[in-house]
């Protein structure tokens, strides 16, 4: 395959991937951010403390995160058709399972990032006479913003990975191209070119995300993606134990 031919195939696929990830990313942000906040607010000691809601949300998020993405694509086909107007094929349709898969992932990262906000700040806001909405707008979101940016970067990168899988079920994009040409037609060189392109996209995205997070976090409240992921994992493993320890520490 010539370089010209490769380019001819790659540009539309790149565009598809970016649109798919972009649209799914937007949907993830719009749904995942409130969901993550709600997990914090309804959680123990939160201003909207509600065990039933908190548990239900927790279960939904955990189940969503546990289902392998390939299965999720198939499982949500009826929903996809509903949203995408009757079809489950094409990049537009692929954004639906992408968003469905990424929302719980992002929501957990949001929850972890927002929980990192010092309880003393929330207390200070309460002492000033702030209500819950004010606390969210003036403290929780701005103080966790660098971490939220990190979390969103991580989510977008995960979406690029997912989008390769979505490609195999007719979503199009770079992953689809790599499998159809590189793998099934033994165009190994082309496959590697596509892989290299994905690596470049991911790297640029990560650098950009880190840059923004670091700039926002020039006041020392920045946490790297890696440490957030680790914290999220630890919280998932032992959410109760960690929280009671925190509660004890904060109440005295």
């Amino acid at each position: 395959m010539t370089w010209d031919r490769m380019q001819e195939l790659m540009w539309p696929a790149t565009w598809e991937t970016l649109r798919m990830v972009g649209l799914a990313g937007l949907a993830t942000l719009l749904v995942g951010l409130p969901l993550g906040l709600l997990l914090v607010l309804t959680g123990k000691g939160g201003p909207l403390q509600n065990q039933a809601v908190s548990r239900a949300l927790g279960v939904i998020v955990n189940v969503g995160r546990s289902i392998p993405f390939v299965i999720l694509i198939v499982a949500v086909i009826p929903f996809t058709k509903l949203v995408a107007g009757g079809t489950s094929l094409g990049w537009q349709a692929a954004t639906v399972p992408l968003a469905v898969g990424a929302i719980p992932f992002f929501a957990r990262l949001v929850e972890t990032a927002v929980r990192e906000v010092d309880g003393g700040l929330i207390e200070a806001l309460k002492a000033m006479g702030a209500g819950t909405g004010t606390i969210v707008r003036k403290t929780l979101l701005p103080e966790s913003l660098p971490s939220l940016v990190s979390a969103f970067t991580t989510t977008l990168i995960a979406l690029i990975g997912y989008s390769a899988m979505a490609g195999t079920v007719g979503g199009g994009g770079l992953g689809d191209l790599a499998i159809r040409y590189g793998y099934q037609r033994f165009e190994t060189a082309f496959m590697w070119v596509i892989v290299a392109e994905i690596v470049i996209i991911v790297t640029v995205l990560q650098l950009l995300g880190d840059l923004i997070a670091r700039r926002l976090g020039h006041r020392g409240n920045y946490r790297s993606t890696l440490s957030l992921l680790r914290a999220a994992k630890a919280a998932k493993a032992a959410p109760r134990a960690e929280k009671t320890a925190e509660d004890l520490a904060s109440s005295h």
């Binding site: 010092d118 003393g120 700040l121 207390e123 200070a124 309460k126 002492a127 000033m128 006479g129 702030a130 209500g131 003036k138 403290t139 701005p142 103080e143 913003l145 926002l216 006041r219 020392g220 409240n221």
Partner: peptide, 20 residues
């Protein structure tokens, strides 16, 4: 909340917003 606005409070660990 309105009553609290008339009571100032300072804290051991200052509790200032680092983003501001």
């Amino acid at each position: 909340r309105e009553a609290r606005r008339r009571i100032g409070m300072v804290f051991q660990h200052f509790n200032l917003l680092s983003s501001r």
